[in-house]
Design a protein around this nucleic acid. Structure first.
Lengths: 177, 177
DNA sequence: GGCGGCTATGCAACTAGTTGCATAAAGGCT
DNA sequence: AGCCTTTATGCAACTAGTTGCATAGCCGCC
């Protein structure tokens, strides 16, 4: 049950419409909790029905028009409750590792290409993250008021760095088959 | 659509019953593709219906009795097909990072304890993995015939190492709030 | 001989996430 | 005016994963 809380957090940071949220999920929140626009619209409907958020009043027709939402006190309270509660880390679920294990049984054809492709993807994402860090968290600022946001970004950087290193290592071991 | 392929791989490694598979998913395959016994039994039923696996003949009553499965040629072919095909890396989905971001908005109460708890969990898992590595992949063996399995385990070790380091770092930055 | 615990399989109902498509306003373009 | 693209919201149907519980054989034990 994390999606509603991801949306509440996003809306507290800045009231938005469904499509704006979708874009923010593609750019920042989605780096560690991805969601499609379908999930977001549906969840916005539920959050509104349960009194956690409300649509800001607007003129004009409903269909095809932007609909902005803001968080109500009940929504903030729910987010506080959820933030204080614990949850175990998610089990890893990565098809590439499954493929490696399958390849050990049925053969390694095409594996090299696939690893190369993943390496390029992870390198690109790592560069993205480093660029964001350079822009939003320059080394000069000593009294950092956004320490938590930075910690989250550092997690993304650390994970992508891990994948790049692991893929490089694994690729260099593979040709010996 | 990875679960059926995870099961095919497991059954090729060794024909098993549903419960045996469940245990192996808790111990080894589940490290990178977790599944409950419910998912496994349901998927075994589907794989049998589609002719990818078959139940080994057995005496005695059906209910409450162990039922072993083995992979049929069609199943192996399907696994080969799937292994050669590509799939993008999964987006990260980690509630803890969401919590950090939410805490930046609604307050950090209880966050320290939660990070400590995660650190302990990741340390334990890392120790598990290192123990398995020590047991199954001792440094002496130069001509390693299980390179792929070892690579998969190294991925688990790398990921847990990352989390331990990141949590330690983040915890040391947190008290300054 | 009946009770508790373990092994084993499985159904039903639910929640979460994905995919494909429909609808409609607004603005440019020719 | 007619058409195309972009922005914007949303329904319906599907696949995947989770939770709770039911059933049944087997074994020890007291």
């Amino acid at each position: 049950m994390s999606l509603p809380h991801a949306i509440l957090t996003a809306l507290l940071e800045k009231p938005s419409s469904g499509l704006e949220l979708t874009r923010r999920f593609d750019r920042s929140i989605g780096f560690f909790w991805s969601a499609t626009h379908q999930q977001i619209y549906r969840e916005l409907g539920r959050l509104e029905a349960s009194g956690h958020i409300r649509a800001l009043p607007q003129a004009g027709p409903a269909r095809g028009q932007k609909k902005e939402y803001e968080v109500l006190p009940a929504g903030r309270a729910e987010l506080e409750r959820w933030t204080a509660e614990g949850a175990d880390p998610r089990a890893v679920r990565e098809p590439l590792l499954l493929r490696l294990r399958a390849a050990a049984v049925v053969g390694t054809a095409g594996l090299d290409t696939e690893l190369q492709r993943h390496l390029a993807l992870h390198r690109a994402k790592l560069d993205d993250y480093l660029e964001i860090e350079r822009r939003d968290f320059p080394p000069g600022r000593a009294a950092d008021e956004n320490r938590l946001q930075h910690a989250v970004l550092r997690a993304g950087i650390g994970l992508e760095t891990f994948w790049v290193e692991w893929l490089t290592e694994t690729l260099s071991a593979l040709p010996e088959y």
